[in-house]
């Protein structure tokens, strides 16, 4: 009897919490998502959230139920029964099988599905990747340097002289990530681990000295650092005292604005050289 009441309360409460969870889910729990991979992250996040809510409610309700229903008042000394139940085939069976099933579900979706989808997006031979905008990203202590080999730009800067990344919307970008220090006086390979992260893109990739890594991604929203500060390139792995300031603004603009910006950067580069 107790178990049935518990079950009903659990189902009702779970339904209420699921309903409440629609609020953050409809408002993007990741705050701001502006890339194709970010959308995958958001969907996976929402899915896990929805599945976990009944589990959370079950365990917490179990605690509260215990504290309310099975509590012994102070000074009260209830008689112990001859034998307590030491197992319950149904409870144990449902728990063990249930937890296996839920975990297998997560392994299949979103783990395997989303990861395989992601691998497919990262294939260099994929059609959308063949005509990508190439950006060489160099991480040094403590600066992100962006160069656009297709446009012969070695280092792009904004009006304040800070490094900046600007990209066209809805076009795949190929980011070539390396960690070394081109300005180091005698040992340009003496660099450390950095991590390339754009909070609004939903992805990060460690940048390891001695390795070259490639990330294909497609920004899906016209945005700028000024518009939303999650649109920035941020070092996510501690890399020494300058780590907190190893960030660069990211602007995503329309195709024509991007061409305009490239021309401007090219003019800037030729005038300074």
């Amino acid at each position: 009897m107790e178990s049935i009441v518990f079950g009903i309360v659990w189902i009702v409460l779970s339904a209420i919490v699921e309903w409440l969870a629609r609020i953050p889910i409809s408002h993007d729990p990741l705050y701001y998502t502006a890339s194709n991979i970010g959308l995958m992250v958001e969907h996976a996040f929402d899915f896990i959230l929805v599945v976990l809510i009944p589990i959370f409610v079950f365990v917490v309700l179990g605690f509260v139920w215990t504290m309310v229903r099975f509590r012994v008042k102070k000074g009260e000394k209830p008689q112990l029964p001859k034998h307590w139940a030491r197992s319950n085939r149904w409870f144990v069976g449902v728990w063990v099988i249930g937890s296996v099933v839920v975990n297998l579900l997560f392994v299949l979706h979103p783990t395997t599905t989303a990861t395989e989808h992601f691998f497919a997006l990262e294939q260099p031979s994929a059609p959308q990747n063949r005509h990508a905008v190439v950006v060489d990203v160099t991480a040094r202590q403590w600066e992100w340097i962006f160069s656009y080999p297709q446009y012969h730009l070695t280092q792009t800067l904004n009006a304040n002289g800070q490094d900046m990344l600007e990209l066209p919307v809805n076009r795949t970008v190929k980011l070539v990530l390396r960690s070394y220090d081109p300005f180091h006086t005698y040992d340009q390979y003496a660099d450390v681990i950095h991590s390339f992260w754009v909070p609004s893109w939903g992805i990060k990739e460690d940048v390891i000295p001695g390795e070259t890594r490639i990330l294909y991604i497609k920004p899906t929203k016209i945005t700028s650092f000024a518009q939303n500060p999650m649109s920035r390139v941020q070092c996510a792995e501690v890399c020494g005292p300058g780590h907190p300031w190893m960030e660069a603004p990211l602007n995503v603009v329309s195709a024509s604005a991007f061409q305009h910006w490239i021309a401007q950067q090219q003019a800037l580069q030729s005038s300074s050289s």
Partner: peptide
């Protein structure tokens, strides 16, 4: 009981981290 509650939160937020694609956003 409080410890079990807290560890539950720790465990369930760990499920998000265990998922690779979500991990790439939440890591670090």
């Amino acid at each position: 009981l409080m410890s079990m509650f807290n560890f539950l939160i720790g465990g369930l937020t760990g499920v998000f981290l265990a998922d690779p694609i979500v991990n790439l956003q939440l890591h670090d």
